[in-house]
Design a protein around this nucleic acid. Structure first.
Length: 270
DNA sequence: ATGGTCGTCATACGA
């Protein structure tokens, strides 16, 4: 019997503030696994009970006060995978990995929040951009040396890699998130052991934005979006990915995150 | 060329 395994990834930009939105989305979409970025909550204050009430009784989280923070939530038992690097030697809550076994088949889930990189795309002048590039290179080198099978990688990778992943390729070539240095680094990381499952289902030039700046007024009219959030699958899983969606309408809810959720559906035994 | 807006935490800072 083949069932469906649905994974949702969302940069929620404060988990506690947007718990009601997460409850609406989970009731509507019923994901089995949820990967959150920018939870902005330290572990002692993690809202476990509220998530239990939504049915996500298995919770891995790694947060810090005010900044960053990632979580993986599931309706089925999760095993935390702890054999990955800290990335740039910083324990700043940007990655969690988990394994879950359903229908006798194991799945690895990576949840990443790549540094945004500041404003100036110059590694010499901007420490935040240097950190971002070092993070991308280290991730690429690590997965090149340790390729995986049966794995998904999702999250806010803070890079819009392709010309059709931004509202204007020409106008964003020197803007952090779409510089050639970043897009080449992201594509090299992906190519180590993954395929772009979102684009597999929505080939370029299909519009597939996941982020719109808070600073853009009239976002519907101007639609200056970027595809910063991603869903990758190892090639052995790619044929199991039977659906991929971006929940764009969530961007127009009251008090939205600047990112919207994405969904991956896998055909899964069980 | 500039500033535009959020969330957190209380004043700047990161996005």
């Amino acid at each position: 019997m083949t069932k469906k395994l649905r994974l949702l990834s969302w940069n929620i930009n404060s988990l506690r503030l947007r718990l009601p939105q997460l409850a609406l989305i989970t009731a509507e979409e019923e994901p089995d696994v949820i990967c959150l970025q920018e939870t902005k909550v330290q572990d002692a204050d993690f809202p476990s009970e509220a998530l239990n009430a939504m049915g996500y009784t298995h919770q891995l989280f790694k947060g810090m006060k005010s900044y960053n923070g990632v979580a993986i939530l599931a309706r089925h038992p999760l095993r935390r995978l702890g054999h990955y690097p800290l990335w740039c030697g910083r324990d700043d809550c940007r990655h969690l990995a988990a394994s879950l076994t359903l229908g006798g088949q194991a799945l690895t889930v990576h949840n990443f929040y790549v540094p945004a990189g500041g404003d100036e795309p110059d590694e010499g002048a901007n420490d935040k951009f240097a950190h971002k590039m070092a993070f991308l290179r280290e991730a690429q080198a690590w997965f090149a040396a340790n390729p995986e099978r049966g794995a998904l990688l999702v999250g806010d990778l803070n890079v819009a890699p392709g010309p059709d992943d931004v509202w204007s390729h020409r106008q964003l070539l020197k803007v952090v998130s779409h510089t050639p240095a970043e897009t080449e680094a992201l594509e090299a990381w992906c190519a180590t052991t993954f395929s772009d499952a979102m684009r597999h289902h929505h080939p370029a030039p299909a519009r597939l934005y996941t982020w719109w700046s808070y600073r853009n007024r009239n976002r519907l009219a101007s639609d200056r979006g970027r595809r910063l959030d991603h869903g990758w699958a190892t090639p052995d899983l790619l044929e199991r990915v039977v659906g991929a969606r971006v929940l764009e309408s969530v961007r127009d809810w009251e008090r939205p995150s600047d990112h919207v959720p994405l969904l991956l559906d896998l055909a899964w035994p069980g």
